[in-house]
Write a protein that binds this DNA or RNA. Structure first.
Lengths: 126, 126
DNA sequence: CGGGATCCGTATCGATACTG
DNA sequence: CAGTATCGATACGGATCCCG
C-alpha cells in the first residue's frame, strides 16, 4: 500500500490525469442516448436507418452525433460500403459488449423497481 | 408465449404505458450527476455539504435538483433535523443500493478500458 | 441513404443574492 | 446550513436543406 508521504508529485499528477480522464469517459458514456444505442445495437450489425428505428425517439442528429462519439472512444465499429446509395453498418466492439452487460443490469433494475418508483412518485407529488 | 394476435388493445395500452414509464425512469437515472451522487453516497449517511465535497465539480443547484429527483423516485431518503442551523442528511434506499451495484460495474468498466479508449481517441483525432 | 451544415427554440447549468 | 429564486450564458436537441 502506497502512502501519501512516499507518493511523488509526479505520481499525484498521473492520478489526477487518470481521474479526469475517467470522469470524461464517464460523462460520454453515462448519457441516455449512448446507453440506449449500445443496448439496442447489442450483438447485431445494423445500418444507420435500422438503428434509428430501434432506438425510438432519437433524432437523426443525436444518432450521428452519439455514433461518432462512440466510434471515437472505440466502442462502435463503422463500416462503409462505397455503393450507391451508400450503406453504412455499425457493430459494437468487444469493450462495448462488456459494457452492455452492465447496461442490461440497469435495464433489469428499472423493470424490477418500476412499481416502487411509480408509487413513490405519487406519494411525493403532494 | 403470447402472440400479437391474442393480445387485446387494453393489454397493448398497458405495455405502452409501462414502456414510457421505463423510458422516463431511465432518463432520470441514466444521467451523469444522478449516477455519481448514488455512487459517492454509497452506504453512508451524508449531509448536503459533505455530499457536495464528495461529488466534486457539482454545483449547489445541480446537487439539490438531483437530490429532489432521486427523493421523488424513492432512491434517497432525506432526513431533516429542525435545529439551527438546519441539518439535513441523505441516505440511499434499498432499491438505490441495488442500483449502486450496477453503477459500480460501470465504474470498474471505465477504469479497465481507460487505456484502450484513450488510444482509440488519439487514433480517431486525425 | 448517410451525414454534414444551418437555424432556432428550449432546457441546462453556474453564479449570485436572498430566506428560515 | 440548506434551499429557493432569478438571471444570463451556452449547450442541447429538433427541423430543415443540401451534398456525396
Amino acid at each position: 500500500m502506497v502512502t501519501k508521504q512516499v507518493r511523488s508529485t509526479a505520481e499525484d499528477a498521473d492520478l489526477a490525469r487518470a481521474d479526469s480522464l475517467a470522469r470524461e469517459i464517464f460523462s460520454d458514456v453515462a448519457n441516455k442516448w449512448a446507453l440506449l444505442i449500445i443496448e439496442f445495437l447489442g450483438d447485431r450489425t445494423l445500418r444507420f436507418s435500422e438503428l434509428r428505428k430501434e432506438v425510438e425517439g432519437i433524432s437523426h442528429k443525436m444518432l450521428t452525433q452519439n455514433l461518432r462519439m462512440l466510434e471515437r472512444n472505440g466502442l462502435v465499429e463503422r463500416t462503409v460500403y462505397p455503393t450507391v446509395p451508400p450503406r453504412v453498418e455499425y457493430t459494437l466492439t468487444a469493450p462495448a459488449q462488456e459494457l452492455r452487460e452492465t447496461i442490461d443490469g440497469l435495464c433489469r433494475w428499472t423493470r424490477t423497481h418500476m412499481g416502487h418508483i411509480e408509487s413513490s412518485r405519487h406519494r411525493f407529488d403532494d
